[in-house]
């Protein structure tokens, strides 16, 4: 009978909670995508233009297909990681302004999961965007080293995790100070220079290059180029070394990011500024 009142209180394992939470948040994103069906299509259409931009520029400058791919991969990674980096702050800001943040917070799931859950969909679609860009470059005649693809995807995945972790620092900032876009904007613009979106970071003067090592983008881009472009000179970090450093970076920032986010939520809760 449907009308019976549930007799017992739900008891769940931690694992079930995590799965339930991720599923529920992805569901919210799907609802949003359904609300604006054309926007998703347009997002994917939009990436055609940067690809064409680099393609025609390469033709104009008469540079090799390899150099075209070098630029394209850099741009694709930056674009792909953009959502992972800024998605959470955007969503959180929206939830705070709308007042739905509290709705999420009164659910019986750990608050530390929120940054991951809120951004998972955006991160995945962002990664897909990067793949679409590279695939378009390949269609335009850019060389792609097929055996490197699985490893390249793994590196991209790690990069996304790292950017999510960095995003949760920005999100903590938003929770406490309500405006975080300038910080994120600054970081993501700096990342395209420091990460070497359109050039290898070896081009950068030595005194600024150390900052590149603090940006996960640089490892992702370097590794992707070595993995995907056939015959890239084996200079700088090897893909394996880049991956390992990236993994370490991700682990540290992830744990620290969750911790800081949880702390900020608690402070905001005590002060009563969760929904201001």
């Amino acid at each position: 009978m449907t009308s019976v009142y549930p007799a017992t209180v739900n008891k769940r394992s931690r694992f079930t909670k995590v799965v339930d939470t991720l599923e529920a948040y992805i569901r919210i994103d799907l609802v949003e995508e359904r609300m604006f069906p054309a926007s998703t299509i347009m997002r994917y259409l939009a990436v055609v233009f940067p690809v064409l931009l680099y393609y025609f520029q390469s033709t104009f400058l008469t540079i090799s297909d390899e150099l075209f791919m070098t630029m394209l991969i850099g741009a694709a990674v930056i674009a792909g990681l953009q959502d992972a980096l800024t998605g959470l702050t955007g969503r959180l800001n929206f939830a705070m302004e709308r007042g739905t943040l509290e709705t999420y917070l009164v659910e019986p799931v750990p608050w530390a999961l929120i940054p991951v859950a809120m951004n998972i969909w955006r991160s995945v679609t962002g990664a897909l965007l990067a793949c679409v860009m590279v695939a378009l470059g390949w269609l335009l005649g850019g060389p792609v080293h097929a055996p490197g693809i699985p490893a390249a995807l793994l590196v991209l995945f790690l990069g996304i995790l790292a950017c999510n972790a960095l995003g949760s620092f920005a999100a903590s900032f938003i929770l406490l100070f309500k405006r975080g876009e300038p910080v994120v904007m600054l970081y993501s613009l700096a990342a395209s220079v420091l990460g070497g979106a359109l050039f290898p970071i070896e081009v950068l003067p030595v005194w600024i290059r150390w900052a590149s090592y603090l940006v996960p983008h640089s490892y992702v881009i370097a590794a992707e180029r070595r993995l995907l472009i056939p015959g890239t000179p084996a200079e700088g970090l090897s893909p394996l070394a880049a991956t390992l450093i990236l993994a370490g970076f991700t682990l540290v920032t992830f744990v620290a990011g969750m911790f800081v986010f949880d702390r900020s939520l608690r402070l905001a809760r005590r002060l009563g500024i969760l929904s201001i």
Binding site: E23, A24, V31, E32, E107
Partner: peptide
């Protein structure tokens, strides 16, 4: 007491589904 706690762009059913799943139903 405020409307703001509902997801405005989702349907009634979707709002309830979200809550139910997070409650572990």
């Amino acid at each position: 007491s405020e409307d703001r706690s509902l997801l405005m762009r989702a349907t009634s059913k979707e709002n309830l589904q979200l809550h139910g799943r997070l409650q572990g139903m």
